[in-house]
Design a binder for these strands. Sequence first.
DNA 1: TGACTTTCGCTAATCTGACC
DNA 2: GGTCAGATTAGCGAAAGTCA
Length: 352
Amino acid sequence: MARIPPKLSGLVKSGAVVATLPVHDLADFQSSATAGKARTLLGAQAQDLGYSSAVDPQMPAAHPVQSIAVDLIDPNPLAPRTVYTPEMIQARADDLRTQGQHDPIHVTPHPDRPGRFIICDGWTRVRACVVHGTFKTLRAEIHHDLTGVDSALFGYQQNEGRKQHCDLDRAMFFEKLKATGLSAVKISALTGVPENRLSMYKALASLPALVLQQIEKAPELFGYNAGAQLARICPAHADANDLGVVKAARIAEAFAAGDKTFKWLKAQVENYLVHKPRAVPSTGANFRYPQGFLRGRGDTVQLELRIDTPERQTRLLEELRSFLRERGIVEFTGTTVEQLPADVGGTEPGQA
DNA sequence: TGACTTTCGCTAATCTGACC
DNA sequence: GGTCAGATTAGCGAAAGTCA
């Protein structure tokens, strides 16, 4: 038997069709969930995945179906999908042209613009018609009982059964749900995605635009694991000139070509972190002397002086040690700089 | 203190190459 | 071409860490 997606695990049981689980998930969240909602969810999900449903397709629809002009349909601000490539739109336009419209799209009346609608499910078909002029109208099932979050979750459940729904879509969708005020706990309960996994998705969604541009070239290749790895070298709020962001974009670009493994990507990130160039901001506190210089660089103070005799050098070192001790900076007992283990000193060659 | 994030280890699914 | 074993990757849950 074909592997059954987790979200539909309740649909087929011992050869019989038992359509219950996905609807209960939604019903728990939204007490206003109706039998019509359940019928629509299960019927559409089963049809998308090629499973027969306990719901009789001949039953009268719980929501009115009518033809709606595609230019009256607006995108859903909480849309579960973000990635729509020109290839996807073209393919869907071709399907509509050759096979017609199999299933109705799903919409809700626009709350602020009477006469217009917001898409719940079927935005690719709408875009295909708008961009390629396939049809001027589409058959649409109109849901009057869905809130904004309801309609978004409806589309999410639908998309989970589709191959094109990628982790970047999921990541963006979860962030949109968070922006509505839903907690991670609630989103986890609604979508079935573990709370800790939401953190990984957040890392993917929060990648800088420069990196996301590369990911969008082949979004199906980038799982949340790959996104979380790239996020390790992208500092929060970094701009496009940040070295880590540039490196992450280059790694993503190479990975999007499709001939690299996840292991390769992870190794690239690790390699960058190990050899990351030190940020050396200038403080402006620089002082030059005939014998050398004293300057501040980032989080270090550098002093380099040429002392012509060993006696004067010894005396200066003692005075400096005394000066540092008075300020709570104490050297390692019984060791010289040369005897320090490599991981203690923390300085790089060339640093005083 | 609770919400959220990170890390780790285990398991299952999938891929790949060697062998017959 | 089919089978098998090992490698790779994703998914999952638990636990510890972090932060407001």
